[in-house]
Design a protein around this nucleic acid. Structure first.
Lengths: 192, 192, 192, 192
DNA sequence: GATGAATGAGCTTTCATTCAT
DNA sequence: AATGAATGAAAGCTCATTCAT
């Protein structure tokens, strides 16, 4: 389920869903945005809901991939934290659709992600990489050994929350400005 | 705007919106849940959108009020953090509609909160109390002097993120279990 | 489930379904034919399928009622047969929608009458009266004692088939013309 | 029109139309059931409606052929009636698609058979053989001389009605069980 | 304040048919 | 003959909102 045309639909829907929301975006609208007929979308995704789920998987794989690159580097946990924050903010600035999709579509539209995306199923690529980062840090005695979810929630919540604040235009500075502060806070919270 | 009947509508809508989502909840459904006619709701709230905004203010005032009580106590910042986390989790367990409304309705349905709730306008009672807490801590030299948003994002994101994980049933333990870890992490991040 | 407005919808749908078929008739079309908005139909019948089932019950009760009147008369079985044939043909001429609904909607659109109208459930008022007629005739020794369905199939099939031929305009004469022949044939087939 | 592949399409459509109905069967579905592409059907039949008409002719010829075989036998009219009933029921059991197509597609979807199948045009092979049977019986003075349609309606309606009852699963016995009763009833109705 | 029938625009989805390959 | 992606009109149904009572 993909192919060139399939990806094209997915990207168009990602952009629209993340901007206008799942319900406020119509299938004809998605189709029109890539000069396709509305009926044809259904040759690629059998329903609007399924499309939404595929998008979440796609975005999560993309984000997980970026963090994996950082995990593969031979640097300290402290440095990795800074890189993760910077990378996340870079995406939030340059390709905000991924972050916004998570915040505005996945997080809220429970009913849509019921079957097949329960728990964190569709987001696991991202979760997994954070887990890898954390456990390596603990093994190296750079990070304090604590409950994984306590640590994961900090990361996910802090970064997501900041992306939200940025999207709401309440931050007086650009995202870059906060990288240092945030990285330090996270490291202080997690360090051994 | 308000009155006994008005509050009744608001509470019913809060419960339904936070459970089923804004779009999946219909006005007749809200009305029926309190044995009222659908038309009559419009005598109290002139539109579904306006109702959604009023709910956000209401919830935010309620949550802000709880935090204010903590701010008024004569205890250390470290102790306050623990109390804030515990209170937030208590609400997330016993009255999850408030927390879920923020996560599942406010956070996502941008288009609904456009006019009159931009930025954090409808959530200011909560934001304000976090700000009071933080500035007092800094003044007392218990907390490090850093950018307010860096600190606020930590609080809001961490707590919200955890409420989300709990709602998704991905946490192996009950929320109480995490209070200590989380409070320590927050204090470590913010302390002077 | 009826009321004045409900019956009005039902009659309008009966006329259209029996003329144009179930699928070729649209809900807006039904609504328009009685100057109602399409949405409002759903306040009376929750789906097109349900509407179709209610119509079948309604028509069957009407037809059953007419035959009951004949059953209540103190006349010979032979005379009753003639009256039943004449009455059926009278309806087929003056209110053909009832007969055509049975032939063109009920008989064929299996999938529509699946739940709640299986077997002859929605047509039982009519079936019952034929059964009453037949068993009385047998008890009076006017009719031969044979399997009920063998007798019922003759009635239902013969009359229905003729109504069909008439509707197809293949009969060279008006229906009245055939009453005598058909009644005699039925009596010869069933008599003791 | 026809050829090997053409007949294959026709048979596949016959089976599907008679089971699911004309409107509930899609052209791609027919194609898929014989491993053909949907577009290719149109090289054989220019429209769904035309296909439906060709099927009716095909089925009617098949049924007419069976009755012709009986007409060609040198046996009494009474014996022929029994054979016709038995043959019809045999088909209704072993190849129900023919009988069901008549009942569930032809009988109801008026609009489809409008042009080219009006009156009994597409069913004439069957009608003709019943006519031959009847007129020979009258000529031999085995059957009473009466209006042809009065006699034809009895046959067609009785048999069709029974096939319907059987299809609805309302008959307590298998079709075979009723052959004797029904044949006797028909003979009693038609005999000289 | 209260009712709930009525409106009608708008949604997702389906499907006969076409046509470039 | 054969493919199947593409089209686009049209369907059933929903629901925020109105308004006569």
């Amino acid at each position: 389920m993909a192919g060139n045309r399939g990806i094209e639909i997915l990207k168009a829907a990602l952009k629209l869903f993340s901007t206008k929301g799942f319900y406020a975006t119509t299938m004809p609208e998605i189709a029109k945005s890539i000069n396709m007929s509305s009926g044809n979308i259904y040759n690629y995704y059998s329903s609007k809901e399924l499309l939404a789920k595929e998008i979440m998987k796609y975005s999560s794989e993309m984000l997980g991939g970026e963090i994996k690159k950082i995990n593969d580097l031979e640097i300290s946990s402290e440095a990795k934290i800074t890189k993760i924050v910077a990378t996340y903010f870079d995406i939030a600035c340059k390709n905000p659709e991924h972050v916004n999709y998570f915040l505005r579509v996945y997080l809220s539209n429970h009913e849509v992600f019921k079957d097949g995306c329960e728990k964190l199923l569709c987001v696991s690529p991202f979760v997994t990489e954070i887990m890898v980062f954390f456990e390596e840090g603990v093994r190296n005695e750079e990070l304090r050994d604590q409950d994984f979810f306590s640590a994961f929630g900090l990361f996910m919540g802090y970064l997501g929350g900041f992306a939200f604040l940025n999207g709401e235009s309440v931050l007086p500075e650009k995202l870059d400005f906060y990288i240092e502060d945030i990285s330090r806070n996270i490291f202080n919270a997690l360090k051994a």
